[in-house]
């Protein structure tokens, strides 16, 4: 009664309760959701998958570590899950036979050029993993387009020697370099069976082949409200719409919607790349536009571009559009009409 002042009382301002989810939890949720996909990559491509993923993650984490050490006060923490996520995502977009040093460099470039130069986590304009991949694609076009066969018999006991190529020596892809479903379709006119595309029994990048599995993992994240489900839905919608029209025009030149959705990097890109919150719009309406743009651009690049795959560039281009989309889709405030959105 006489103690007028309680010695230990903290004076802060409201709110005094907090939703338990924090940024690190979100990143680890995504990492967690990628585990089945990484396991599928191991199942289809064996030791090579394990090694490439390790190299990519090591590259990303080393660069993150170096940046955090060099620049004091740089945002982020080495174990917040974000560098691990970037490295893993990058590795999942790489061909199984890529020399490990390239995967390592790709991881480092993802963090360095994709994130750190912009000011670190939260400030980057482009999806860091895709920046790393775009760099590798430009720097090492041959290694990035050599595809070892899927489910080879000795995949769990030996790894292709191309993995261990010495830096800047010409990488040699041994064994049979097979075609991915996209290149087979667009360059040779051969369609992979849809069930192989669904379960992932095709050649391609490590984590992109198992379409159904990616969808399930994405559904998990959507239910946990870790990412915005509108983005993948918008991508699927625009891809289905556009490719169905094209398919009606000429099924010989234009493959079906199902093929477009499940072949190549469409699923991985739509579920795990386009949904990166940092590089996608803040507004709900913006997310629909962003997703639709990715879908349309990916199909256009696939059908009329020089490359068989267009998802990476579609996502990166729409990343660049994000600030503009945000600006023009700003929601009206409560109790105002649309025309009053901008007061000055």
């Amino acid at each position: 009664m006489m103690s007028r002042e309680h010695p230990d009382l903290l004076l802060t301002t409201s709110p005094f309760v907090k939703d338990p989810a924090d940024a690190s939890w979100i990143m680890w949720q995504v990492n967690f959701a990628l585990m089945p996909i990484a396991a599928a990559a191991f199942w289809y491509f064996g030791l090579a998958a394990l090694l490439v993923m390790t190299a990519g993650i090591l590259g990303a984490m080393s660069m993150e570590f170096a940046v955090l050490k060099m620049a004091s006060g740089f945002p982020g923490k080495i174990l917040d899950g974000s560098a691990l996520l970037t490295g893993l995502l990058l590795a999942l977009t790489l061909p199984p036979g890529i020399p490990l040093w390239m995967a390592f460099v790709g991881g480092a470039v993802s963090i360095g050029l994709g994130k750190a130069v912009f000011g670190g986590v939260g400030s980057n304009m482009f999806n860091p993993a895709l920046v790393g991949r775009a760099f590798l694609q430009a720097a090492f076009p041959v290694a990035m387009t050599s595809w070892p066969a899927v489910s080879s018999a000795d995949r769990f006991v030996s790894a292709s020697s191309s993995l261990f190529a010495f830096p800047f020596m010409t990488p040699t892809v041994d064994g049979i370099s097979s075609a991915t479903p996209l290149s087979a379709r667009f360059f040779d006119g051969v369609s992979a069976p849809l069930q192989d595309l669904l379960i992932g029994n095709t050649s391609g990048s490590l984590g992109e082949t198992a379409g159904l599995l990616i969808l399930v993992c994405g559904a998990y994240l959507a239910i946990r409200r870790v990412f915005n489900w509108r983005i993948p839905l918008a991508i699927f919608g625009s891809v289905i719409l556009l490719t169905s029209i094209l398919y009606q025009i000429d099924p010989e030149i234009y493959p079906s919607a199902g093929f477009h959705l499940f072949a190549g990097g469409m699923m991985l890109g739509a579920v795990f790349m386009a949904t990166d919150p940092v590089t996608s719009p803040l507004t709900q309406k913006g997310c629909w536009i962003f997703g639709a743009g990715i879908g349309v651009m990916a199909v256009v690049i696939r059908q009329w571009g020089g490359l068989p795959e267009g998802v990476m560039y579609a996502v990166l281009l729409m990343n660049a559009m994000t600030p503009l989309i945000d600006r023009f889709t700003q929601a009206r405030t409560f109790g105002s009409t649309r025309s009053e959105r901008f007061t000055r």
Binding site: L10, T12, P15, F16, V17, K18, D19, D22, A23, S24, I26, P75, G76, D80, G120, V121, G122, S123, N228, P277, V278, S280, L282, Q284
Partner: peptide, 14 residues
């Protein structure tokens, strides 16, 4: 008591 350690905005829309 909520102890807040600030992290950069990750634009999560929440």
């Amino acid at each position: 008591v909520v102890h807040r350690e600030e992290y950069p905005c990750i634009r999560c829309q929440r």
